[in-house]
Amino acid sequence: MKHDDIIALAHLARININSDMVDDVTDNINNILSLVDQLQQADTDGVEPMSHPLDASQRLRADEVTEKDQRDSLQSVSPAVESGLFLVPQVIE
């Protein structure tokens, strides 16, 4: 990965990287990627990818209301709230 790739990746991950940090981050990410590149040696032909240790599927429940309305309590930890709504900078002109 090059300098510009990291800037594009950081945009995808919605993280700002200070310009004087980009070289450091690039080096570290490249070191990690060369570590994980060892995976390419493994013969995985015909091996089913494993996403769950017990190969379990998502448990479903009956389509019934089970939770009470806790909006006020859950929004009590929000940085900016008004009338039950989360406030963000203006999005629509």
């Binding site: 994980v36 995976l39 390419q40 493994a42 995985t44 091996v47 089913e48 990818p49 494993m50 996403s51």
Partner: peptide, 9 residues
């Protein structure tokens, strides 16, 4: 995908 295959191995 490759990592998940190795995980099964």
């Amino acid at each position: 995908r490759k990592a998940q295959q190795v995980r099964r191995l």
